[in-house]
Design a protein around this nucleic acid. Structure first.
Lengths: 111, 111
DNA sequence: TGACAATTTGGTAAAATTACCATATAATGT
DNA sequence: ACATTATATGGTAATTTTACCAAATTGTCA
């Protein structure tokens, strides 16, 4: 693979890797609804503050969220609405796979 | 986070993680064009046969590709056209980020 | 049947990711 | 200035991922 092509894939990987964690997918879902401070997210997630902060940094570096400091709190919000599309695509793949598997097992699944 | 919600995110993570590798993104691109055997992909990628085979297994388990054995070769093809949409979304995010960064630097970028 | 080609699987060392703790930084209120 | 609150950063052990080699499996062909 040539360098240019490799770089293209690496850039894509960075975005996709940023989403490849259940906590970060949760954060994306929550921030899609409404901007939130680290504090609020930490309460919902239950992990250590530093862990949540690091997840947010990863999302920010990937260009998926934006941060905004107000007083002594940092508020995060979704930057790329496209993130939701990616999740939606993943859900479609999951549904398709499930349907196929249930077809094999002879079970019907509701939409 | 409750169990049910955690499971939902884990299912999504499985799909997204399957795509979170430059070699696997390359494979998705190639298989989107045309079905190919492991042999052909291995030649293009240059990694060990076993490495390529393992990447294909990951994609298959995630429901992104299908395999079909003919004679002593295994042909793989894209199962979820949605995978391309995910890549497209990633590209949009990359482009947006690049535009924003060049705006800051005062450089114009063509579409 | 035996040799060969294509692919997968098992084992393993190296690299990357993750989560916690401790510490640092920044803003606010006393 | 000092204590407090909110967040980020550095260090590190545990876990996961990756890539290679060797060996097993499957199908073809002589």
């Amino acid at each position: 693979m040539n360098i240019k092509l490799k770089n293209k894939y690496d850039a894509r990987v960075k975005i996709i890797k940023a989403m490849a964690h259940s906590t970060r997918l949760f954060i994306i879902d929550e921030l899609s609804k409404k901007e939130k401070c680290v504090c609020e997210l930490q309460k919902m997630i239950g992990d250590d503050f530093s862990t949540v902060s690091k997840h947010l940094t990863i999302l920010k570096n990937a260009g998926l969220v934006l941060s905004n400091k107000r007083s002594n709190q940092v508020f995060y919000k979704i930057d790329a609405s496209c993130a939701n599309k990616i999740i939606c695509c993943a859900d479609n793949i999951i549904k398709t796979k499930l349907k196929k598997e249930s077809k094999i097992a002879g079970i019907k699944i509701s939409n």
